[in-house]
Design a protein around this nucleic acid. Structure first.
Lengths: 222, 222
DNA sequence: CCACCACCTTTACAAAGTAAGTCTAGGATA
DNA sequence: TATCCTAGACTTACTTTGTAAAGGTGGTGG
């Protein structure tokens, strides 16, 4: 086997890392395991991420939060979806439609790797892709009639809602600990009444998004 | 010193763990360090958390998300805040006011230990305190005129917003990596125009909360 | 032809989680 | 009172992890 040049790249490393996270959980992502998956010694990874695992985490977060990738990747040539999403790339949609498209895309991107969500926290959202999104949101909310600090507030609210909704779903779906969820014994009548066996998260997200968008436009208008 | 009975308890352990997390970060919370802080050998902790560190994390999350504690703890006798919060314990406030009180309390609770936020993700929100809050929220939204699935959706949206807003703030405030945030070079005019040196997160949260509450009530009314 | 560089391997170590067993004080029992 | 039990804490030791340090290997430009 060739001693060097095993064809490693940051892209391949990150992709493989995400595969491990998705399949076995974040805690099982170790340098050695990642090396094995890449057919390489663990230390080889350090050549591409000299600052170690934290830097790898940075790259993972940057990858998973980059909505651009999922939308503009050429691999996506299978009967592209509805016209609304198509026109989004042209920037010809009204402000609220653009924000809806982004929200759904971002949610999907985060949900695809919900095992890596913990890496988001305490990591600064200043990647190029994030800034591009922020710029677009500011423009959209100005178009919506907001101005000044209200624009930034609105963008923050939108981002908060989407991120929060994903985390809400991830928490609800996370594997239960062996202890029973026995607590529907009469002390929580409303909770018990609604059942909530398996909520339709997609629908819930969409409706919540409408509520948030409407609320933001109405309440933050200067 | 007495060989056994060093006065350990789950409460003391969790409190000390949170102190370490707040002061040095989650990654520096190790069993040995925690043992040192508690004046005890690391393995002593396993007597109270036989399932290991994960179980300790569970307890930490339960502790930090329990809004009840911060509100009803007897240590909090220093000139209690405004009357609105006082009446909240009596349950005599209108539904939206009750939700506002909860939202601010919950936000404050999470923000107080933002270093432990990562533990929230992928941990099921089925603690007693969480269920009690959920029950209260369902009741409130029914009082607001919602019914059926809309109640659960509204509660989910509210929780998503609060959690998301805390994470948004935590991400914004997290220490920057040595690389410069140089990206205000003309490609992001709106972002550059708004500056955003240090946003008023508290005010932003309050205004966003109003928008969300209004939007939820208006848009999810059956 | 040689020096250098990008890329990967080898070797090694310190720190972390925790399994397994031991010790001690205080209470229950006879 | 003598004995035993047990909760709670300590000791030891093993495995896994991250990563520092140095070495090899092939290609590339001078």
């Amino acid at each position: 086997m060739s001693r060097n040049n095993a064809g490693l790249s940051t892209e391949r490393i990150v992709t493989e890392a995400l595969r491990i996270i998705d399949g076995q959980g974040l805690s099982r992502l170790t340098m050695r395991r990642l090396g094995d998956a890449l057919q390489v010694e663990a230390m080889a990874i350090y050549h591409h991420f000299p600052l170690g695992k934290e830097q790898l985490f940075d790259a993972i977060v940057e990858h998973m939060t980059d909505v651009t990738r999922s939308r503009s990747s050429p691999e996506d040539d299978e009967a592209t979806s509805d016209a609304a999403e198509e026109a989004a790339q042209e920037g010809e949609l009204p402000w609220d439609e653009r924000l809806r498209v982004w929200a759904h895309d971002y949610r999907a991107a985060l949900l695809r790797h919900s095992g890596a969500l913990a890496l988001l926290i305490n990591r600064r959202p200043d990647t190029t892709a994030a800034l591009r999104s922020l710029e677009a949101h500011y423009a959209a909310f100005q178009e919506a009639g907001l101005s000044g600090a209200a624009v930034a507030h609105a963008a923050a609210v939108l981002d908060s809602y989407v991120t929060g909704a994903v985390i809400h779903q991830a928490r609800a779906e996370s594997a239960a600990t062996p202890e029973a969820p026995q607590v529907l014994d009469g002390r929580y009548p409303h909770v018990a009444a609604l059942g909530e066996i398996e909520p339709d998260h997609a629908r819930r997200f969409s409706e919540g998004l409408e509520a948030v968008l409407a609320g933001v436009r109405a309440h933050l208008a200067s």
